[in-house]
């Protein structure tokens, strides 16, 4: 019996850890893939900052340029830091071994992050870094506790501190307190992260730009077909009693 209880307790430890992470309310984010300007701003942030360490290794530069209305010349001239050819996949600037030495882990590929974790997760994560002297990087994140990644964009957002409170014997996140302000106001930083999240949703599934429109045409065609098929059926079935 005691053995059983211990097993149950041991098994529930990771579940509790997850629960602590999952109980955090994720902020909803307004995704609008028809907003080309927003996608372009997001792409700029992603390529200038994220792509230094993270890859988007399933995506090609020229495909992104084509979808986002950025000419090949502009992509080559301004965004092609880590690759030689416009048709290359978007690989991280930093080699994986160097990243492993610096952070203790290889930064994950981000192509599909909004499909696996959701846009809300990504949007909240990017705004939830806080100062934590006890961690190796000096940063921590309430959405992803003890994450190896430092707050890369802290010069934009500034520093914030996380205030925790006791709740049913556990330490839970309460709110952020502003430490020092960055080069962006809170509003501008939030908008920038919204653009970045918007871009990440596009990056996760470029087909999203077209599939709603095509789907609408297909369904309209099928509805007309259904009407004709119904008339055909009605005509034949007139003589069945």
């Amino acid at each position: 019996m005691i053995k059983k209880i211990i097993i149950v307790l041991l098994l529930s430890v990771p579940a509790l850890g997850l629960a602590a992470g999952n109980n955090l309310k994720l902020d909803s984010v307004d995704i609008d893939l028809s907003d080309k300007a927003s996608l372009q701003r997001g792409a700029r942030t992603f390529i200038n900052y994220c792509l230094s360490c993270h890859s988007a290794g399933y995506m090609r530069y020229n495909r992104m340029g084509k979808d986002l209305g950025i000419s090949d010349e502009l992509v080559s001239g301004n965004l092609l830091f880590a690759a030689d050819k416009i048709g290359d996949l978007m690989k991280a600037v930093m080699p994986a071994e160097d990243a492993k030495k610096a952070f203790g882990t290889v930064p994950p590929d981000l192509t599909l992050v909004t499909r696996s974790r959701g846009p809300e997760w990504f949007y909240t994560y990017m705004r939830s870094f806080y100062r934590d002297e006890s961690s190796a990087s000096g940063w921590n994140n309430v959405v992803f506790p003890d994450v190896a990644m430092p707050h890369v964009l802290y010069s934009w957002q500034g520093e914030q501190r996380a205030i925790f409170k006791e709740h049913e014997g556990r330490r839970v996140f309460d709110r952020f307190e502003v430490g020092s302000s960055g080069s962006m106001s809170e509003e501008v930083y939030t908008d920038t992260m919204r653009d970045l999240t918007n871009f990440m949703v596009y990056l996760g599934e470029p087909a999203k730009l077209v599939r709603y429109r095509i789907g609408t045409y297909v369904i309209i065609f099928l509805l007309i077909f259904l009407f004709v098929a119904y008339l055909l059926k009605k005509e034949f079935w007139k003589d069945v009693h």
Partner: peptide, 10 residues
């Protein structure tokens, strides 16, 4: 197919 397309595209 209408139901199928609704899921597949949307």
């Amino acid at each position: 197919l209408i139901l199928f397309a609704a899921v597949m595209f949307f």
